[in-house]
Design a protein around this nucleic acid. Structure first.
Length: 736
DNA sequence: CTAGGGTTAG
């Protein structure tokens, strides 16, 4: 919208005064009623009283009414407007009323309307004053109406009110928040007004454009820094992710004897959470109690966030439970806290409670819940979330929400749906490309993962370290040694990304599985950092695949030292011995494991039926439908036998890794889950299961056959990848 | 009678 240029006639217009003097009216008894009015209904009553007594004919009384419903939080802007229109028949020459309505729109969801009102004001011949412009500039800032803001700037200059401090600062603020730093700076530099307020307006502009160091220089120039300017600087560091500096700034603030307030603490708590500074967090917590601010919602939310980020989830929950009226941020913070600590059940339980409490979830809620769906393989819930987003949050610009959906579908094995979501995104982010690439890789489609990588480059996206984790893992899953090497060196040379542990992990896994042990060892020696347990672990797994007993023993010893509490290395080494037929050594390792009191993580498979997640352990008889499950299992085994399937008993020991020895092969958790899936879903439905460990060789062969016999697609997610079983084949080509 | 800068979840 363009504001017509201010004509001379309007500038020189002198409003007529048709109201009786204010003083007389101020003493009118009914006017005092407004000060006690606290809701729209009593306002209506007062309004009717005004009509009865004839007060409604005075602009002064109406302006009081309008002010109440336009600005008070319990007011009603449309009521204010109808009051305003009721006095349209006579010229509203009182700028106060116009200003009030312009202010009301600047606070509303459609601030741009205040500009329309401003135009209307000009056409009615009312001269804007120094009160009008701060509201207008706030609206321009909110609506990012740069062009209109510049025109209004011209009006300010014509009216010669640019040296008014309020007008001046709101102008700087407007240019700052639409990203026009040069103009903000120009306004600032042209004026002699250099108080903390105008400095701060400029500082936040620099911060939001990412120039936190420039902001700091300005900050240092402020003659007398007040709380707000300190808060702005601390928040600037927090927004730039420079949390240590935020805390240092907070320290300087205290040295300068400026007392912090609520906002200071809210901001500092956010930094504490990111840095895990529990000590400072606790100190602020007692500050909050001492100041009697324990019931302040913003502060409590910030404390909940800080505690959960510091891992003190129970303290966080206690605070959360103590909140009288939780807002959506309280819920999101708590759910996100559980989610990021891997406490999935708790996160889901709280989400359910949130919905039952009739709190409307928003995009941030789902950013906490979708990773839970992804980790648990809870596809039904994930689909529900997707439908909810489509229905209620369709217009969200939040690219990370769509990315979370892509990730969820990919991790639930629905790579086609993930791709549909990706295709429907309005503006793709780097993260969404990354999610697609690693999603395709983990679903065993290396070729398309690499295809997406080149496509993304064509669309002008610069890959980052996470992209390359996806690309390299695609190579690893598919055993593409040469390509993997090429991408690895291209990452370093062409993209100047220095490899991290995860990249080395992929490469060593890739080389080891291809039997290139020498090359893997050289790479491990040349790494800039110490290889971690995961890297030694993948080398040990490679030793298992290639029957490398001697190297395996060496690698296992390293792992025993590095991670004495991790039974994984013992299990893998015993597998290596079993594979070589060295049963005495198998027994020796098992004794060693038992002596240490370590237990193998039990194999556990889950399957979601109608939104409920059912978990199975080896030989598990706890399920309410246990009897029918075992009846189905017998039938499965019978059919397997009839089609010539011979259980590989050597694998019982060989694969102790996965299910130890306590259960018969046919009672492995994945088979229980599949049997349950067969009796609980309609024929032909895809069965999806999630296993916490790698799938065992015997079950893998059995599942391939089951997919053919029962004509079912079975999608199994194990610890690191997917197996799509169909017609007797698996997408992994029997290599995992 | 109104007015300027900072403030929580990802």
């Amino acid at each position: 919208m363009m504001v017509s240029s201010l004509s001379g006639s309007i500038l020189h217009f002198l409003p007529n005064s048709c109201d009786p003097p204010y003083k007389v009216l101020e003493e009118h008894p009914h006017l005092n009623l407004l000060s006690k009015c606290n809701n729209i209904n009593s306002l209506r009553q007062i309004h009717s009283l005004f009509i009865k007594t004839g007060l409604h004919n005075t602009t002064f009384a109406l302006s009081k009414l309008i002010h109440f419903c336009a600005v008070s939080p319990s007011g009603d802007l449309s009521y204010a407007l109808s009051l305003f229109h009721s006095i349209q028949h006579q010229p509203v020459s009182n700028p106060f009323i116009w200003n009030t309505l312009i202010r009301a729109f600047s606070l509303s969801l459609s601030p741009i309307f205040s500009l329309q009102l401003y135009l209307h004001m000009l056409h009615s011949g009312v001269q804007p004053n120094s009160y009008t412009f701060p509201f207008l500039f706030k609206s321009c800032a909110k609506a990012k109406a740069t062009l209109e803001g510049k025109q209004l700037h011209a009006h300010v200059l014509k009216l010669a009110i640019h040296s008014n401090p309020h007008v001046h600062t709101s102008l700087i603020h407007m240019y700052s928040s639409v990203g026009q730093l040069d103009y903000a700076r120009l306004v600032f530099d042209k004026s002699t007004l250099r108080d903390a307020v105008s400095f701060t307006a400029l500082i936040t502009g620099y911060v939001s454009e990412g120039y936190v160091d420039n902001a700091r220089h300005l900050f240092d120039e402020i003659p007398t820094k007040d709380v707000v300017s300190w808060n702005a600087m601390i928040a600037g560091y927090v927004q730039s992710g420079r949390f240590e500096e935020a805390l240092a700034c907070f320290g300087h603030m205290q040295e300068a004897y400026v007392s912090p307030n609520k906002s200071t603490m809210v901001t500092v708590l956010s930094a504490c959470g990111h840095l895990g500074s529990l000590e400072l967090g606790n100190w602020i917590s007692s500050w909050v109690r001492e100041c009697g601010l324990g019931s302040n919602l913003q502060l409590t939310n910030a404390l909940v966030d800080m505690y959960s980020k510091c891992g003190e989830i129970d303290t966080a929950r206690e605070l959360f439970d103590g909140i009288e009226e939780r807002d959506v941020i309280s819920w999101n913070t708590m759910i996100g806290g559980y989610s990021s600590l891997g406490l999935y059940e708790e996160a889901l339980a709280l989400f359910e409670l949130m919905l039952r409490s009739n709190v409307t979830p928003n995009d941030v809620t789902f950013l906490g819940i979708l990773p839970v769906c992804a980790c648990l393989g809870a596809l039904d819930l994930g689909k529900w979330v997707h439908a909810y987003i489509d229905k209620n949050l369709k217009s969200t610009n939040n690219a990370s929400l769509w990315t979370s959906l892509i990730d969820m579908y990919a991790k639930c094995g629905c790579i086609e749906v993930a791709e549909q979501v990706f295709g429907s995104m309005h503006s793709r982010s780097l993260a969404s490309w990354n999610a697609m690439i690693s999603g395709l890789a983990m679903n065993g489609d290396a070729e398309r993962a690499l295809g997406f990588f080149s496509e993304m480059a064509n669309e002008g996206f610069q890959p980052d370290d996470i992209t390359f984790v996806g690309v390299l893992s695609a190579c690893t899953q598919a055993g593409l040694v040469d390509l993997g090497r090429q991408y690895f060196s291209s990452m370093i040379q062409d993209y100047r990304i220095s490899p991290k542990l995860q990249h080395y992990g992929c490469m060593i896994d890739l080389l080891g599985r291809a039997g290139k042990f020498e090359e893997a060892k050289i790479m491990m020696r040349n790494m800039e950092m110490e290889p971690d347990g995961a890297i030694w672990g993948s080398l040990l797994n490679a030793c298992r695949v290639h029957g490398q007993v001697e190297l395996g023993e060496y690698v296992a010893e390293r792992l025993f030292q590095m991670e004495p509490e991790n039974p994984g290395a013992y299990v893998l080494l015993s597998n290596i011995y079993a594979g070589a037929g060295r049963w005495d050594d198998v027994a020796r390792i098992r004794t060693r494991l038992n002596d240490k009191g370590m237990k193998k993580v039990p194999g556990c498979t889950s399957i979601e039926i109608d939104g409920v997640v059912h978990e199975f352990l080896v030989g598990d008889k706890f399920h309410p439908q246990s009897k029918s499950i075992y009846r189905m299992l017998d039938e499965v085994d019978k059919l397997l036998e009839e089609s010539g399937f011979v259980p590989d008993t050597s694998e019982v020991l060989y694969d102790m890794d996965e299910e130890w020895k306590e259960g018969a092969l046919s009672q492995h958790s994945e088979k229980l889950a599949i049997a349950f899936g067969l009796i609980s879903t309609k024929p032909g439905t895809t069965i999806r299961i999630v296993k916490n460990l790698r799938v065992c060789g015997n079950c893998h062969s059995a599942t391939k056959l089951i997919s053919k016999i029962f004509n079912r697609e079975i999608i199994a997610r194990d610890r690191n990848r997917f197996h799509h079983f169909k017609d007797g084949f698996c997408s992994c080509d029997d290599c995992w």
